[in-house]
């Protein structure tokens, strides 16, 4: 069952990543691009978790946690830059 489901899930999440890239390239405004980057890192976590289930290895969660931390910091920094014109005042 899992061997059937996991390739489908990989395909769906990869399509989601492709859509995010499209929005990142097209996005008419800066917040659109930041939102696309934000969604990209969340989808990367999904891909890593799927890879962990697929390979049966728990090694990938540290990577997922690091990506979650750094992605959030990056989004907040970009939004602060747009809001205040400066990141650390």
């Amino acid at each position: 069952m899992l061997s059937v489901v996991i390739p489908i899930a990989f395909t769906l999440v990869a399509l989601a990543v492709a859509l995010n890239f499209w929005r990142l390239l097209v996005g008419p405004s800066l917040p659109d691009r930041i939102l696309a980057l934000d969604t990209l890192y969340v989808n990367t976590i999904a891909l890593l978790v799927l890879l962990g289930i697929h390979l049966g290895s728990a090694l990938y969660f540290e990577a997922a946690l690091l990506i979650a931390l750094m992605g959030f910091v990056g989004t907040v920094a970009l939004c602060k830059y747009l809001l205040r014109g400066d990141i650390i005042e």
Partner: peptide, 9 residues
């Protein structure tokens, strides 16, 4: 996940 990105696009 796919539906979320579809909405974004």
């Amino acid at each position: 996940t796919f539906i979320g990105s579809l909405g974004l696009a």
